[in-house]
Design a protein around this nucleic acid. Sequence first.
DNA 1: ATCCTACGATGGACCCAATCCAAGTCAAGA
DNA 2: TCTTGACTTGGATTGGGTCCATCGTAGGAT
Lengths: 136, 136
Amino acid sequence: MSDLLERLRGRGWRLTSQRRVVAEVLDGDHVHLTADEVHARAVRRLPGISRATVYNALGELVALGEVVEVTTDGRAKRYDPNAHRPHQHLVCSGCGVIRDVHPHGDPLAVLPTEERFGFTVAAVEITYRGQCPACA
Amino acid sequence: MSDLLERLRGRGWRLTSQRRVVAEVLDGDHVHLTADEVHARAVRRLPGISRATVYNALGELVALGEVVEVTTDGRAKRYDPNAHRPHQHLVCSGCGVIRDVHPHGDPLAVLPTEERFGFTVAAVEITYRGQCPACA
DNA sequence: ATCCTACGATGGACCCAATCCAAGTCAAGA
DNA sequence: TCTTGACTTGGATTGGGTCCATCGTAGGAT
């Protein structure tokens, strides 16, 4: 975590108590929190921190590549702090729980050139859907 | 299209002029429209059709498996009438244009058993991201 | 240690997509 | 043709997110 804060400072990120708390919340649990959940946890550590500030900090962390946004349900975006380890997501259609998963091979490789329509393809996001053991 | 309407009637779908128009709009162009875009086109054919009705009809078509919802940008959901031909999506990070694509092989097969955590995996959604020729 | 100032935080208004609801309408079976 | 339960309507409401004017402060300069 201090690695993260150091990295951010090195990039000219002004280190405020609010930003520190948001970064700590994301680092604390290896989960997929919504912005409101991040805000709720941040408030516990720093009462009075505003929702707008949390949104700002999350947006900056995403822009800096430290956190990735995932939208698995068409509702609130979720923030995944595991940005430096490439992975995909497995989502339970029943309860919505999300697990990080690692498919075999390079997911980009299975898209043939003639199916790329001249695009320069840079990234791929995969969502596997099914029922978790508890919901099945 | 009349196939679709017949199929829906066969399933007890009460065929109203509004539902007919929504189905026709989706069938007309092979595109990925937002609910508001569907509404705008539906109004041209049936002035006065309400947004709520369009949302209702779209939700029913999705539930019936005739249309799939796609959320590629965290904003408005898009409705893809090409539900019976399995495919994935290639999205331009610049202009947002969406193309249907067909990767090689079975996308489910690349997820090893030990990465499924006991889930019964039923479906997979893949979004490839890159720059289209015009934006590159 | 103190000052300066540009960058960050605040919260309340605002926006967009979507859903809800009570009242009115109508498809289609009898 | 009648009847009725399913469908439509539009206006209010919700949920998630953004905007903005004002206030506060991190951290470099002195």
